[in-house]
């Protein structure tokens, strides 16, 4: 068995993200996390949404499903149901996963499929040149909100907690080591794991810079009880001078795949087509 290294995931294509983009940090951490867990490009699937984040597959050598804007989660759940031995990771954005795909997000969390969702959360739509995303904070001036955002922002962590996610975490793309550890835990978690990643958009957001985040972020320490959902909510709403990172909530609950009777004999993809009980089916209609 060959060792998986971060460099194993190179495709030969170079990233097209803006220099300094937060996506670089997430990409680096994802490669490191997969390598650290020994998951090679052949043994996992990444499902990508549409947005700057979604271009990642071109320089990420792992089975990749580059789908439609907002639709990563239905695809990822189906892949997992068909072949539950494969780790499945959604590479999603805040507009992608919380706007266009908001309904899928809620329902995926409640079903608890064993998949990991990484939300590239930068408050803007970068690929369409800088409109406000669903997580944009009140007052934020963007191309689509010249007077500042008037809506309340979607809080991805609180939404995931409400919907029933069993692993809820937040990382920062400016700390790749810390993010790598979070991603490892998320991938290893049995159930729906969300990692919301704060990342600066260096081109369209001059407010939330690396420096802005660095002055505010801190990791939750051992005093935070990650099994306490109410505490997790409290921390999820902490935003301002102090912004917490780390695992907010973790729960052990049977996964969608574990509860699916057809998967008891192994992955669907590996089960032969069997028509032995077809005649009995016909009898029901006579």
């Amino acid at each position: 068995m060959t060792t998986v290294r971060s460099s194993s995931f190179m495709t030969g294509k170079m990233p097209t993200w803006c220099p300094g983009c937060g996506d670089f940090g997430i990409w680096t951490s994802l490669k490191d996390a997969l390598a650290g867990l020994g998951i090679s490009g052949d043994d996992g699937v990444c499902v990508y949404g549409v947005g700057c984040h979604g271009n990642m597959y071109n320089w990420m050598k792992i089975y990749g499903f580059a789908g439609l804007h907002g639709r990563t989660l239905p695809v990822a759940q189906a892949i997992k149901l068909v072949n539950h031995e494969l780790p499945v990771i959604c590479i999603s954005g805040d507009g992608d996963g919380l706007g266009e795909g908001g309904n899928h997000f809620i329902h995926a969390a409640k079903r608890n499929p064993d998949i990991t969702v990484i939300i590239h959360d930068n408050q803007v739509y970068g690929l369409t040149t800088g409109q406000a995303s669903p997580s944009a904070k009140k007052g934020f001036v963007t191309k689509s909100t010249p007077e500042g955002v008037t809506d309340a922002p979607i809080n991805p962590l609180a939404l995931a907690l409400t919907a029933g996610a069993t692993f809820v975490a937040r990382g920062f793309s400016g700390d790749t080591q810390g993010l790598t550890e979070l991603l490892k835990r998320a991938i290893q978690h049995k159930g729906f794991s969300l990692v919301d990643v704060l990342q600066p958009c260096v081109t369209f957001d001059k407010v939330h810079t690396y420096m802005w985040y660095r002055e505010r972020v801190y990791y939750l320490d051992t005093s935070h009880d990650a099994s306490d959902k109410v505490k997790a909510f409290e921390k999820a709403y902490e935003w301002g001078d102090k912004i917490p990172l780390g695992v907010f909530y973790e729960e052990d609950r049977p996964t969608a795949e574990e509860l699916e009777p057809a998967l008891k004999c192994g992955p669907l993809a590996k089960q032969p087509i069997d028509s032995s009980c077809f005649d009995a089916l016909l009898e029901e209609f006579i």
Binding site: V45, V47, F65, G67, L68, R71, L73, P74, V75, A76, Q77, A78, I79, L81, V82, N83, N103, H104, I106, H107, E260, P261, A262, L263, C265, L268, A269, Q271, D274, C277, L281
Partner: peptide, 30 residues
């Protein structure tokens, strides 16, 4: 008949999810 036939029927949240799920499942090999 899902149990006896060893098949998965999933009720999606909407038809958008349903079609994306069917596509994801076919991609994964069935």
């Amino acid at each position: 008949h899902a149990k006896e036939l060893g098949i998965v029927y999933k009720q999606p949240e909407d038809e958008i999810a349903g079609m994306n799920m069917a596509i994801g499942a076919a991609y994964a090999g069935i």
